[in-house]
Design a protein around this nucleic acid. Structure first.
Length: 595
DNA sequence: AAAAAAC
């Protein structure tokens, strides 16, 4: 096992004081940006790679000095690998993957139907709602951030950005009903980054905590590890050369490396709830400096049983209360559980609901085929063979196959491999390493078939997925929407094939409705199935298609609806398919603006 | 019913 200064710094706290050769009280406390504002004081050192150095001596004059320079007489503990800030745009292998389309050959944004943006229904409510903007230029985000926006090739803000960013920049709390793929990440990242940059120079209340505790200024919670990783990658692009540091922490991965990253400084912490609770209990992270809190996919997190952890993090640790921080709550839907979360976590919030952008586009051709359980494998094989013959198989044509169970995923993967279709799988029984390897291998086209459970259904942005196969359909139409949303991205066309049989009876109606609304060809047999289906009601039923995930319940004092699931309560107007042009809303160059 | 998530 390798022993480095970083390890020493990580594993031994008290002797840090001894290691210091300054008189400053050596607080292994992260120095927030506003203490780093006045150019680095002398911080160069003679670099000796292995020997422990004084903690407050930085080794890199450039990027590093933004982070490590001691200020106001108390040092930081920036031991360890003094890496320069890696250019998240320059990383050809990984970071470039999702940005690749944006930075590659496809220059110019021809074919983007910006007008489609205007068709997307948006609803806001609350007191004194800050007005939306139409361009990024209208928002004063600062030059560094603007440059990153240009690097990302974001041309025009998406609806959730147009409305949400001014709200957040205006200092207001935000309850946003928006789907994955609506541009949420940028919507909450831009105000956070901009706010942190702005706060530089403010007086610091010195955190009175003990050793090795870090004090992020912003916290972003998300339900799955991969989603956290993805948000982190996005946020790093947005914060490149802004002096704002983003760190991600999630379970299943060695904690020491994450601790080391944290100790190098953290302004924005992106985390899954479990690992964060762990870090909080170890007192390695304190939330008392939190100025911004963003909860992504909140309904998902509640579905997954995270409410206790989330309430613990937000209410029972040392996070400043609502009003003393700025909170952004994102959720695809607005059931009463989320409403109560909103009223507990938010202060005089603005409610924002954005139509189901990006989820269903006419770029996705949806097919449903009646396949008995026993025929599914051979049927899948037929599809894959056909794809291969058409020369679609390969790096540019990835196939994502969804199944319901982890076991089923393993079994199918195994079977595919045995039949000479290189496949891998991602699900919760695999180690995090395996999961990330699988994702990478899929993205690069090494194994162009990925068998997945719903862990991969939401939020993940995998470019070049040409075909989503619902080998087993989900019970919830929303999950279906999210699954097929893994294709038809980046302005490319996508195909979604579903294997339907009697086991999916409860989905017949909502699926038929959904497809109809999306101007898809609904097979005759499915319509008949839907018509005689007794399972049409309940949660899966879309009430003619909700344009929003929810509505600001505060406006409707008389709201009673049986007090039940406030699920899809849009008006009886067309939902998904309304414009049919959502897909056109983003083109090759601006794809990830929607994620 | 299954999936996800800390050690």
């Amino acid at each position: 096992m390798r022993t480095s200064w970083a390890d020493l710094a990580t594993n031994s706290a008290p002797e840090n004081a001894g290691a210091s050769n300054t008189t400053a009280p050596l607080r292994p406390v992260y120095v927030p940006p506003h203490l780093r504002n006045r150019g680095a004081s002398a911080s160069a050192s003679t670099e000796s790679s292995s020997a422990p150095r004084p903690l407050n001596v930085s080794t890199d004059n450039n990027a590093r000095s933004r982070w490590g320079a001691p200020r106001n007489g108390w040092g930081n503990r920036s031991g360890g690998w003094d890496r320069r800030e890696v250019n998240p745009f320059g990383d050809q292998e990984d970071a470039a993957e999702e940005g690749a389309a944006a930075f590659g050959e496809e220059q110019g944004n021809t074919g983007i139907n910006f007008d489609a943006y205007e068709d997307i229904p948006v609803e806001t409510s609350g007191e004194n709602v800050p007005p939306p903007v139409n361009t990024f230029a209208e928002i004063d985000l600062g030059e560094a951030l603007n440059q990153n926006i240009r690097r990302c090739k974001y041309v025009k803000p998406t609806p959730v950005q147009r409305h949400g960013i001014p709200i957040s920049l205006g200092g207001r709390d935000l309850m946003a009903c928006a789907q994955t793929g609506s541009g949420k990440t940028a919507a909450f990242c831009f105000p956070i980054i901009s706010g942190i940059m702005r706060s530089q120079g403010q007086p610091l209340q010195r955190p009175p905590r003990g050793v090795r505790t870090v004090y992020p200024l912003a916290l972003v919670l998300s339900p799955t590890r991969e989603l956290s990783v993805q948000i982190h990658e996005e946020a790093r692009k947005f914060s490149y050369q802004t002096g704002v540091r983003v760190v991600v922490a999630y379970g299943g991965a060695p904690i020491n490396q994450q601790l080391r990253e944290l100790e190098r400084g953290v302004d924005i912490l992106v985390a899954t709830p479990g690992r964060l609770v762990d870090l909080l209990e170890r007192a390695r992270v304190s939330l008392q400096m939190i100025k911004y809190l963003a909860l992504d996919e909140a309904d998902r997190m509640l579905d997954m049983g995270f409410e206790p952890q989330i309430r613990k993090i937000v209410e029972q640790m040392d996070m400043p209360p609502p009003g003393a921080r700025q909170t952004m709550l994102f959720s695809a839907t607005f059931p009463k559980e989320i409403q109560s979360l909103a009223s507990d976590f938010l202060s005089n919030y603005v409610f924002l609901a954005v139509g189901r952008v990006g989820s269903i586009t006419d770029l996705i051709v949806q097919r449903v085929e009646y396949v008995q359980e026993s025929d599914k494998r051979s049927h899948l094989m037929d599809l894959l063979h056909a794809q291969r013959e058409n020369g679609v198989q390969g790096k540019q044509a990835l196939t994502l196959v969804f199944v319901e169970t982890k076991k089923g995923a393993d079994a199918l993967e195994h079977w595919l491999c045995r039949n000479s279709f290189p496949a891998t799988t991602i699900h919760g029984d695999r180690t995090q390493q395996e999961r990330e390897l699988a994702l990478r291998s899929f993205k690069t086209g090494n194994t162009p078939i990925l068998v997945a459970t719903d862990v991969a259904a939401r939020g993940l942005d995998i470019p070049h997925v040409a075909h989503v196969v619902n080998f087993e359909l989900p019970n919830d139409i929303d999950d279906y929407v999210h699954r097929i949303g893994r294709t038809g991205r980046a302005g490319k066309k996508g195909l979604a094939t579903a294997f339907f049989n009697d086991n999916n009876a409860s989905l017949a109606r909502p699926l038929a409705d959904l497809m109809q609304e999306a101007n898809q060809e609904v097979p005759e047999w499915l319509s008949r199935y839907a018509a005689r289906s007794t399972f049409g009601g309940g949660r899966n039923r879309r009430n003619g298609g909700s344009r929003f995930g929810g509505r600001d319940f505060r406006r409707e004092g008389s709201f009673s609806r049986g007090g039940s699931d406030y699920y899809s309560t849009g008006k009886n107007s067309g939902g998904y398919g309304t414009s049919g042009g959502y897909g056109g809303g983003y083109g090759p160059g601006v794809t990830s603006a929607w994620d």
